[in-house]
Design a protein around this nucleic acid. Sequence first.
DNA 1: ACCATTATTGAACACCGTTCATTAACAACT
DNA 2: AGTTGTTAATGAACGGTGTTCAATAATGGT
Lengths: 197, 197
Amino acid sequence: MSRPQRLPREELRQSILETAREILRHEGVEGLSARAIARRVGYTAASIYNVFDSMSDLLMEVNRDTLARIGSLFAQLPATGTPRDRLHRLCGEYIRFMQDNPALFGALFGGTRQREAFPDWYVQAIRALLGQVGGLLREHAPALDESQAMELAEQLYVAIHGTLALDLGRRLDLVTGQSAQGIAGAMLDAVLARYPS
Amino acid sequence: MSRPQRLPREELRQSILETAREILRHEGVEGLSARAIARRVGYTAASIYNVFDSMSDLLMEVNRDTLARIGSLFAQLPATGTPRDRLHRLCGEYIRFMQDNPALFGALFGGTRQREAFPDWYVQAIRALLGQVGGLLREHAPALDESQAMELAEQLYVAIHGTLALDLGRRLDLVTGQSAQGIAGAMLDAVLARYPS
DNA sequence: ACCATTATTGAACACCGTTCATTAACAACT
DNA sequence: AGTTGTTAATGAACGGTGTTCAATAATGGT
């Protein structure tokens, strides 16, 4: 078609995304830039913009992958033990994943995002994950109806998000000596304790 | 002493801080820069560095002021009603303050901070605020000893932090339709419900 | 009148995201 | 074979960032 076209479009696209994830893993969010990606991929910063509309669009694609990984992480959890056990396992694994990949957390929740435009798949992916929590809550307390369970799941998620935001921002020790896992577990138990087991 | 010295050191220092707070209030964190402050103060960006070691040091001083404001906000709360009422009031006012001053929240908790060096007054100020929550928790549930109450206070704070981090990052609606105040209230009640009133 | 002191600054450095006219290689048509 | 059109890739620029530092300029003291 063109100049060299050193890589087919889709291949370049995947290569950029993979490189972005690699930088995030090894250098953190602050090491990620269009120029840094381009350097590693063997292109120029401008070329990134032939494939993605903006850096924030590129990050969105990284987030899509992250949400998928969390989804399959949850899917692979053993379905053994009481609902309470399973909830502790699920929360624990979510926290562990984010602690292992702090920059992915930063990409998901960092920066002041543009309003009025979270893509639909983004919202759906999050609701699907929350739905699993809601389901387990209903197994624990069958008296809950679905919307009550979802409200609880949302509250629980928000609380755990606070733990991670402080922990990964290196400020949790400013507030407490407790570990992220400890705090999340305690809050989960606080929620569960209000309903018959 | 020198060139004009258009303002005595301390006066310039205060003027810089005041201007920084003003920018944060009106333009948000993304509008704050050494050059932006300097422009408004009538100096040059380089002059900021005669007074502060770095932008992050400057932000630390803004944070000192913020923590003091929160402290006096808490001090002015009416001491009427049950401990539960007072806790709801305190949490509610904290959330309202941050919602009214989102950039101050961003300054307190944004950016990946430098490890191993939170000044002592910073840690003390936070512990003092948490101590008030712990005190009210003990009034609500006298069976709690002080360290148990502090652990609970810390957990509650972390949960509320999650609410605010999502809300002010404009991502709360991605997770839930509930309001920040609603979620925080529900989590406070979840904590209180575990102990005799 | 001179000098030392020092607050202030302009200019630079190395980055950032983003845009765009130019370049270079190929496909297709004469 | 020669020409033209298409288009991937890029170099260079724009306006921004935090930060540093040598040069400047005004003052107080001698």
